[in-house]
Each structure stands twice: as structure tokens, then as C-alpha cells.
């Protein structure tokens, strides 16, 4: 197979699957993105694996869009024949909390779905193993959800060490603190570098300020 077969295949698939949108396809960069209604996922995965050789599931990423009340699942597929990466984006309702597993098609999904389950609380039906793997001794809510505030949790749970103890204050009062000045450090004989301008004149800096 060659790369030329890839784009016509994607176009033909658009006609076959309802609601499928090829959001962007950049074959030179080997990246393509497809947006899909969640119920069509298995159809597309079967076609991709069977017809185009997308046998390698690189990752399943989960993104929590809390304002829309949705989880976005991204399936990154790689084809060893086409040398193309296909990202399939679907959205699942956040409240429902369950979705179909793709373990039958892709074994690596077993790890990623297990991970998403404990980090986001999204249950995958049909996965062989939904037990906890990393957070076996964690009783709180799924921590990667946006509504879990880990800083507040840390503030409630842990105490901190004194950062300005008396012995240090004595040293600082006596004029101590820094032991070796930077000019005498070992690798300080550097050449002068055309460093970036940090003042913020760059166009992106202006965009950042807007």
C-alpha cells in the first residue's frame, strides 16, 4: 500500500459513517484528525484496522471538558504500512460515566482504559480488568477530574516544614547564605549567546497580553 490510498480511503469512509468529520489531515506531517459520534467508534476502528493496517494503538487520552460536561476520548492509531497517525476524537457524557471498551480490537487498550477508569472514573464495559492499578490505596474521588482540587487536598492533609528556621536567620544576619558566587563556579566561562529578547516585543507576547 502507498500513501496515495490513504486520503481517498478517508473520503470514502466519510460517506459510509454518519457524522464523521475529517477535521484536519496533514499527510506530510503524518497527522490526521477525525471527529466522530461516539456510537460509530467501533465501526471506524474496525475499518481502520482491517482496511488500512492501523494495528498499533499508540494511546488513549482522556480530556475532561468540565464546562461542556463531557469527556473527550482520543484514540491515537498508527499504521506501520502507511506511516500515518490517525487521532479519533469522540465525546462521552460526563455524568453517564461509562463507555464501550475496545479491548477486543486492541490489546493495549486494557492498560489505557484501566488508567482512565481510576484517574477519571469512566467505566469501560467489556474490558477484562477494571481494577485499580496505581491508586490502590486511594479513597478519594478520581484525581484527574477537573473538579478535584489537589492543592486544597494537600493543604488539608499535610503540614509543612519551617522554611526560615532560626539557625538560617543567624547565618543570614551574619552575612552568609551563598557559598560560591556564580562567577567562580566551575562551568561559568561560557560564550556569550544571542539570547532571546524577554522584554515582550514578540508578536506572541502581545497576543498573550490581550
Amino acid at each position: 500500500m502507498n500513501m496515495d490510498a490513504f486520503t481517498p480511503w478517508l473520503d470514502a469512509l466519510c460517506g459510509r459513517i454518519d457524522g464523521m468529520v475529517v477535521a484536519c489531515s496533514d499527510l506530510a506531517q503524518r497527522r490526521s484528525r477525525i471527529d466522530l459520534p461516539s456510537e460509530e467508534l467501533t465501526t471506524l476502528l474496525e475499518a481502520a484496522k482491517g482496511e488500512m493496517g492501523f494495528v498499533h494503538l499508540s494511546a488513549i487520552s482522556c480530556v475532561d471538558w468540565i464546562e461542556e460536561g463531557e469527556f473527550e476520548l482520543v484514540y491515537h492509531l498508527w499504521s506501520y504500512e502507511q506511516n500515518q497517525l490517525l487521532s479519533i476524537h469522540i465525546r462521552v457524557a460526563r455524568d453517564l460515566g461509562r463507555f464501550q471498551s475496545v479491548y477486543d480490537l486492541y490489546r493495549p487498550a486494557g492498560f489505557f482504559e484501566r488508567d482512565i477508569h481510576e484517574m477519571y472514573g469512566l467505566y469501560f464495559e467489556g474490558a477484562p480488568d477494571m481494577e485499580k492499578f496505581i491508586l490502590t490505596e486511594w479513597n478519594g474521588p478520581p484525581p484527574m477530574r477537573k473538579d478535584f482540587d489537589s492543592e486544597a487536598f494537600v493543604g488539608e492533609t499535610f503540614d509543612w516544614q519551617q522554611y526560615n528556621p532560626e539557625w538560617l536567620q543567624e547565618i543570614v544576619a551574619a552575612g552568609g547564605g551563598v557559598v560560591v558566587p556564580p562567577t567562580e563556579q566551575r562551568f561559568s566561562q561560557r560564550k556569550k549567546v544571542d539570547g532571546p529578547d524577554w522584554s515582550g516585543d514578540h508578536p506572541q507576547a502581545k497576543r498573550g497580553q490581550e
Binding site: P143, F153, V154, F158, D159, Q161, Y163
Partner: peptide, 19 residues
Amino acid sequence: TVNGGMYWQSYATAKRLDE
């Protein structure tokens, strides 16, 4: 181990060992 280091915000690590 002294004070949580760069993981001070992390929910998963203990901060002060001497507690």
C-alpha cells in the same frame, strides 16, 4: 523528603518524612 520538594502540590506523595 524534607518538604515535598517539587511535588508539593501532588495528592499522591507524603511531604515530610520526619512526621
